[in-house]
Simulated scan of single mutants.
Amino acid sequence: MSAIMDTAANANRQAALVQGETVDTSAEAPTETDGVAVRRLARTGSRRSTMPPWLMQIVAPVLGLAFLVLLWQIIAMSNSQFPTPLLTLQEALKLFADPFYRTSPNDQGIGWNILASLQRVGVGFGLAALVGIPLGFMIGRFKFLSSMFGPIISLLKPVSPLAWLPIGLLVFKSANPAAIWSIFICSIWPMIINTAVGVQRVPQDYMNVARVLNLSEWKIISKILFPSVLPYMLTGVRLAIGTAWLVIVAAEMLTGGVGIGFWVWDEWNNLNVPHIIIAIVVIGVVGLLLEQLLVALAKAFTYEQVAS
């Protein structure tokens, strides 16, 4: 009987194929071969997941760097003006053998240039934190201030930070304060927005308890708002420091003086491509270290609720 039904099903399938119709085989029962294939795939998947997590964290980044170096070598082989990874490494060893030499105001080691850029970032970023974080608290706390400053933030936040550089040069009449001004104006928006959002997302029950206890505004900010808003605030700080480090490199290219951005531009004028690549790597490493430092700070000050 089953043989007759199989023969009839095959005949119907062939007829449908002849007529150009689509045959739905999803309802067919899986055969023994299908089961073997499924078990084989399951064994393969389990075999792929046997690598220890710590080994995966080492192998994956190493393979990524190796791929980048290989791509770099291929580009260097196709373009004779592009330095190879080995040549760049040799130049880096010479460069970092004495990173703090100083022969003239415009001829200094890469170490001094990095420190000069970090100093500008520290001043501009610090001023942005002193202004942006309290302003974010007030905007998130009071609806009137939120309605007042909301349109201003929406209007000015999309403006490119380098567009503020001519304003800084016009006001301060000097390149160094103008670069700090550009860092300040680009760093303040993430701090204001994230802090204000954190304040607005504080549970209303907390505020009701504060109202019942008749707490002062300072007690509400220090005991309720600040612990709840801290993760949001630190997220804004992380975003701001990354943006500030990006802006200072571009600002120093335009203003000149001492700094990693000016150093890159000066090496380009000298057609020293290996030094430019070294500077790119240094900029990336410094930016990564700044971000990781703030991530560690966020983990140190962020608490988790413990289930009772």
Results as ranks from 00 to 15, higher is better:
147 S>E: 14
127 L>P: 06
136 G>A: 00
152 I>T: 15
112 W>G: 06
129 A>R: 05
159 V>S: 05
152 I>S: 12
135 L>P: 08
144 F>K: 07
162 L>I: 15
136 G>D: 01
134 P>S: 10
147 S>A: 13
129 A>W: 10
144 F>C: 01
133 I>R: 05
124 G>E: 05
168 G>H: 01
162 L>H: 12
119 Q>N: 15
153 I>H: 04
126 G>P: 01
140 G>Q: 07
151 P>W: 04
130 L>N: 00
145 L>N: 07
143 K>A: 14
146 S>D: 10
145 L>I: 14
151 P>E: 03
132 G>R: 13
155 L>F: 14
162 L>V: 13
152 I>F: 14
132 G>H: 11
121 V>C: 05
109 G>Q: 03
144 F>D: 00
117 S>C: 10
143 K>H: 09
168 G>Y: 01
154 S>G: 14
164 W>N: 04
139 I>E: 00
135 L>W: 06
161 P>S: 13
170 L>M: 13
171 V>E: 05
110 I>H: 01
137 F>A: 02
169 L>E: 09
118 L>E: 03
145 L>V: 12
128 A>D: 02
163 A>S: 15
154 S>M: 11
122 G>I: 01
155 L>K: 03
116 A>F: 08
126 G>H: 03
144 F>G: 03
171 V>T: 14
146 S>V: 03
149 F>E: 03
166 P>Q: 08
116 A>M: 11
119 Q>C: 12
134 P>C: 10
163 A>M: 12
112 W>I: 02
112 W>S: 10
151 P>M: 01
129 A>E: 01
118 L>V: 09
122 G>D: 00
153 I>F: 08
126 G>W: 03
119 Q>W: 15
151 P>H: 02
169 L>V: 13
169 L>F: 09
145 L>K: 08
138 M>T: 00
155 L>V: 15
165 L>C: 05
168 G>N: 02
126 G>C: 08
147 S>H: 14
159 V>Q: 10
131 V>F: 11
131 V>C: 08
172 F>V: 12
173 K>V: 08
129 A>D: 00
156 L>Y: 15
158 P>D: 08
117 S>P: 07
139 I>Q: 01
138 M>L: 14
111 G>M: 10
133 I>C: 03
140 G>S: 08
114 I>K: 09
160 S>C: 08
139 I>M: 09
168 G>T: 01
159 V>H: 10
155 L>P: 02
116 A>V: 09
113 N>T: 04
108 Q>V: 15
152 I>H: 07
148 M>T: 11
172 F>E: 08
125 F>M: 06
109 G>H: 02
